[in-house]
Each structure stands twice: as C-alpha cells, then as structure tokens.
Design a protein around this nucleic acid. Structure first.
Lengths: 115, 115
DNA sequence: TCTATAATTCGATTATTATCGAACGATAGA
DNA sequence: TCTATCGTTCGATAATAATCGAATTATAGA
C-alpha cells in the first residue's frame, strides 16, 4: 500500500503555495475542488495527458494545497481548506474568487483535450 | 527618456501575479513596499547582486504588482494596490498578512548580502 | 565637461519545470 | 487468475528562470 506524503500544517510555506497556485492547470484543478468537493484525477478533464496531470497533482499535494486519499484504484482529492486558512487566512478565498472572475478559466476550458 | 511598460489594470493575469509573488526575494520586496511606501532599488537591501535585483523588479513590474517611476537616476517603486484590489480583491492583503507571520521573512533577512 | 551614482542590459551558466509517450504498479471485478 | 481501470514513474526534450559579473546607459552635480 502506497503511502502519500502530505506536509504538516506547520510546514506550509507561502512561496511554495503561491507557486503551486501560479499554474493555469493547477488553478483549474483547485477551482474544481471548491466547496469541499472530492474528485478523482479523471474527474478534472484537464487539457493534458495523464502523466502531466499526475505531475500537477503531486505539486499541489507536496505544497500542501490538496489532500489525496486512496480508495481502490482511485485517488480522491480535496482542498486542505482548514490548514490553508490557519496558515494563510483569506488567501484561498481570494485566489478562488479572483479565478472565478478571470479570463483564465475560459481559456483552459476551451482547450483541446489530449488523448 | 526611458519609458517603462506597465500592464493595464484590465490586463492583470492571476497566474502571472501569483507567480511573481511566489519568489522569496520578490515577496521581500513587496513586503517592504507595504502601506504605500515608495522605495528605490537600493533601499531594499536584498541578498542578491544588483543585476539580479533588477531582474526581480522587472518581473514584478511586468506582472503588474508594482509601479515604477523614474526620478533622476533612481527608480521609485510602489505597489499597485488599487489595481490589484480591483482585479483580485483581498489577494494582496492575504499574501502580505501571511508573509508577516511566516518564517520566510526571517530566512531572507539573515542572509549574507553579496557585493 | 568630467565624474560619481543608480540601475539596466547582456551573455553565460545552472537549475527547475512543463510536457509527452512508454512502461510499470496496484486494485477491483469477472 | 486474467483483464480492465486508474494512476504513477521514468526518460527525454524544450522552455523558462534565477543568478552572476562585466559592460552599458542615464542623470545629477561639481
């Protein structure tokens, strides 16, 4: 049984979290996890191949933005809302709020899906 | 007379701004501009040489985080608080607030200054 | 006009990262 | 046990970025 590392709440680093959130694909992932929704990799419909998606999900996990639990063959992701709020109050809200009203969302959603 | 390009308020991009803020040196710069303070390059006392500092300041300017005006031989920087607040409400506050309580500040402030 | 100051630009180097395809690993279910 | 599904890992490539030192530009002031 594979064990996934998640940084402790106290280990969250501002630069690292901002970097994780600074990629359009990763912003798309996080926006789809909004409101506590839990999703598997396949659910995101990202405009990149599986291995690239896996890379981005790992970046988000290792930075502490998302939590991943294993259920069968799936990985189920959630945002670490409480931990982020504890260390960086208001940050997640501000980023997701800004994302909703940005053009970035639209750009990616209209992108071709690779096989 | 050199002309410096600043993106229009409407051109601000979330990923780009988050990326600009995701570097420890650049976070240090922005934190020193807090509360509307205006500073020149030399005022920041950054742990990097001049040319590297110039690179970071350009990244911040081109992303739309700071405004730079020329006065004599100096460049005077300010945060584009109003524009950032307009496009990304609460973001700057959240980032700067988080920075204040983070360990990142301490790390950089105790670093050696290159010549 | 000369010089000192402030900062940028340039070229080179090194490190990181985003991306893909192919191969692999783990689990559920037939 | 076999197979399909879900996802990761690996190796390669191309792009981007952080850093430095040296050369350059622009301006203020003597």
């Amino acid at each position: 049984m594979k064990i996934l590392h998640h940084p402790d709440r106290s280990e969250l680093n501002l630069s690292t979290v901002l970097y994780a959130l600074s990629d359009p694909i990763r912003l798309l992932i996080v926006s789809k996890l909004r409101n506590g929704e839990e999703r598997s990799c396949g659910d995101f419909e990202l405009p990149v191949v599986k291995s690239t998606a896996s890379h981005h999900l790992r970046t988000l996990r290792e930075s502490g933005v998302i939590h991943v639990r294993i259920q069968g063959t799936q990985r189920l992701m959630t945002i670490r809302t409480d931990d982020l709020e504890y260390r960086f109050p208001g940050l997640l809200e501000a980023v997701l709020g800004a994302y909703e009203t940005s053009e970035e969302k639209q750009n990616l959603l209209h992108t071709e899906q690779p096989t």
